[in-house]
Write a protein that binds this DNA or RNA. Structure first.
Lengths: 125, 125
DNA sequence: CTAGAACTTAGAGCGCACTCTAAGTCAAAT
DNA sequence: ATTTGACTTAGAGTGCGCTCTAAGTTCTAG
């Protein structure tokens, strides 16, 4: 970059998001980017703010175990425009339930692990 | 079973634990069972209470994303006897940290998802 | 103008945790 | 005694989400 520019190269975007460049390309190939990442003055990708913001949200969906295929469905809805906001809301609400269930299960498991830890600490076998 | 017996067949154990018979055999092959599952009056497996209790704890470790390889290490320590309780405690404490981190990340992600849900509800884009 | 680094694509490869298959053995009920 | 269904093993196959490779192109610095 010669001039100050709001957009980032793929390696800069990787650094910003904590993903690898491989993963960023993979996500794009899989149709997970909202509008297609721009190509500037060449074939090279340029990530603008909206791209980064979306990748960050996408990362939240992944970290709560939303499958790639479900994210693709969500993206397809976004692309179809404002009329799909009820469907998007529904999709997120359904996902929310799975996240709550995961948190609940993990919390219960943590309790069991803590109990086991306490038995080791007390030396009671 | 003709007589009342405290032990279970593999399919009964599967039903009790919520795992498949395939998975129970897989775990055994991978060295994740504490003492080797007994074989009664034939080559058929018989799961006693201690086996079921262990499988249930093992399931907690798995549901908190402990890798099979780490569980195998833990099992190896248990097999070595009481002298390894400090090492087991250490292993569980380390794992505990990863669980807390997972819970934290998932909770943060849930907050982001909830925020997005709220924007859809307010219709503000 | 040139060298080297960073980028491009298409597609192959990998690690994990199962999950299933095939071919055969065993046991409970008739 | 026979049938039916559950069980056995070893090993192959699957699905997911990356992760890497190869061969070629483009940008930047000197």
């Amino acid at each position: 970059m010669t001039l100050v520019d709001a957009s980032l190269s793929i390696s800069e975007a990787a650094e910003r998001t904590g993903l690898s460049t491989h993963t960023l390309r993979y996500y794009e190939r899989e149709g997970l980017m909202l509008g297609g990442v721009g190509r500037a003055s060449s074939t090279h990708r340029r990530y603008v703010d909206a791209d980064i913001t979306w990748v960050e949200f996408l990362t939240k969906l992944r970290s709560t175990a939303m499958p790639i295929s479900r994210i693709r469905e969500y993206v397809a809805l976004v692309r179809q425009g404002d009329s799909t906001t009820p469907a998007r809301l529904e999709l997120l609400l359904r996902h929310r339930e799975t996240v709550v269930a995961q948190l609940d299960e993990m919390t219960r498991s943590l309790a069991a692990i803590d109990y086991k830890i306490s038995t080791y600490r007390k030396g009671s076998k």
